[in-house]
Write a protein that binds this DNA or RNA. Structure first.
Length: 425
RNA sequence: GGUGAGGUGGCUGAGUGGUCGAAAGCAACGCUUUGCUAAAGCGUCGUAGUCCAAAAGGCUACCGAGGGUUCGAAUCCCUCCCUCACCGCCA
């Protein structure tokens, strides 16, 4: 959520920066400001009325304590009550309206974010490793079927299209990856492991900015109160919602494995093959809550933690930065990490690392006490996948394909696979 | 799911209709004094909104959340949420 004061003071600057998102937000900014003005005038009137009532009520109390009659004053102030009720109602409505409008405004892109209209304008920052050389690359779906690693048919049988059942050694590989990633981030990168619920209250979804705008992408319970987590970002970042954390506790680093549930409403028919886009998938997430002055350094570090995964697994990848037009709703700056999948002849996004600055913190009222100014200040929040599992899985089996048709997994995974890193029929 | 007890400021904890935004203690911050790893004294010390060009200051709201009664609610009533204890059910 943006600071309403910023909109009041620098409306044109806000509009300009939002315009870089390749969508028109100026009318929304104007709407917020109009409501803000109405709201403040209603509040001022309400405050005057309340002050008057408080004053008279005190007089009544004073008279009564002396045993005097206060009926006249009581009658006079009674009509005030109606005005107050009316005005309270109006001020409340306007406040709610203003909040709702503000919640639907995205974050300001960072000043240095590359300006562009869509993914084609995302600059490649760096590449690591080299593309493996395959004469006959094989698609992961074919490999999986041949080696009995997973079954889209079984997934469809019990849940529908877009769901997967991993089987045998294929299921073991999924579990191995979860353990490997959590071990890496907890022992090497300073994250605390958490294992949160997957059913999340509505206000948490608002806190990390999935709601109110993107409800159609989420799986919700029938009563609308709870949602299946679309990413561990939601439960994990919200662990600290409405807190004033001790400054000495920063930076806070959490990592969590969770399944992620997404309707993928806007992506019907896109990348639907195999493991690449599913309604439920596993992910290990990295979340940081940091001092505002540290957040951009933290973003570089966090991105490095995700990249380390691919380096340890020997997978070729590249890191790109999202241009302003491709940037997620709440993010000020985002790096995507894309792993090379030989069978797809394409890079697959396995991680999206973002700095939200104080955008989420303001929504969830997450602050720390600045020891110098003794003021409560909004923290900065970041998160990134470390990493998404299915696409990592795709890259692993397509890259590890051997001439005899088996798959050789990276040495690093051997111990997690019971010492045997070969997948064969 | 049932019964009972609770939810007050960073923490502990008083407060059952008016002068209570809230005693007291702890913690924190500042000053003073003394000085062998610290003590004592004094002072400051909630959050948010709003008014004023701004500071100073004023006003309003906030005692789990929402609603009600009343001239006036932390205090009385209703609903909900959460915590704790016991019981039931259960992986």
């Amino acid at each position: 959520m943006l600071d309403i004061r910023l909109l009041r003071e620098l409306p044109d600057a806000v509009k300009t920066r939002l315009a870089a998102r390749n969508a028109e937000f100026a009318p929304q900014v104007d709407a917020v400001l109009a409501v803000d003005e109405e709201r403040r005038s209603a509040e001022t009137r309400l405050q005057d009325l309340n002050a008057e009532r408080n004053r008279v009520s005190k007089e009544i109390g004073a008279l009564k304590s002396q045993g005097l009659d206060a009926a006249e004053l009581q009658a006079g102030v009674k009509t005030l009550g109606n005005d107050i009720a009316e005005c309270t109602c109006l001020a409340g409505e306007l406040e709610e309206k203003q909040r709702d409008l503000l919640l639907r405004l995205p974050n300001l892109p960072h000043e240095n974010a590359p300006v562009g209209t869509d993914a084609a304008a995302n600059p490649v920052l760096r590449e690591w490793g080299t593309k493996p050389d395959f004469e006959n690359p094989e698609d992961h779906v074919a490999i999986g079927q041949r080696l009995g690693l997973f079954s889209p048919e079984l997934g469809a049988k019990i849940s529908g299209s877009g769901f997967m059942v991993y089987t045998g050694r294929g299921a073991r590989l999924e579990r191995a990856l979860i353990s490997f990633l959590l071990d890496l981030h907890t022992t090497q990168h300073g994250y605390t492991e958490v294992s949160p619920p997957f059913l999340i209250r509505r206000e948490c979804m608002v806190g990390t900015s999935q709601l109110p705008k993107f409800e159609e992408d989420m799986y919700g319970m029938e009563d609308g109160a709870m949602f299946l987590a679309p990413t561990a970002e939601v439960p994990v970042t919200n662990l600290r919602r409405e807190e004033i954390v001790d400054a000495t506790e920063l930076p806070i680093r959490y990592t969590a494995y969770t399944p992620c549930f997404r309707r993928e409403a806007g992506s019907a028919g896109r990348d639907t093959r195999g493991l690449i886009r599913m309604h439920q998938f596993d992910k290990v997430e990295l979340v940081q809550i940091v001092h505002p002055s540290e957040s951009y350094a933290a973003l570089e570090a966090l991105t490095g933690h995700a990249e380390k995964v691919l380096q340890l697994l020997g997978l070729h990848y590249r890191t790109i930065e999202l241009c302003t037009g491709d940037l997620g709703f709440g993010s000020a700056k985002t790096y995507d990490i894309e792993v090379w999948a030989p069978g797809q002849n394409a890079y697959l996004e396995v991680s999206s690392c973002s700095n939200f600055e104080d955008y989420q913190a303001r929504r969830m009222n997450l602050r720390f006490k600045d020891p110098e100014t003794r003021k409560n200040v909004f923290c900065h929040t970041l998160n990134g996948s470390g990493t998404a599992l299915p696409r990592l899985y795709v890259a692993l089996i397509e890259s590890g394909l051997q001439p005899d048709g088996s798959v050789l997994l990276p040495e690093r995974l051997a111990s997690y696979m019971g010492g045997d890193r070969v997948l064969q029929a």
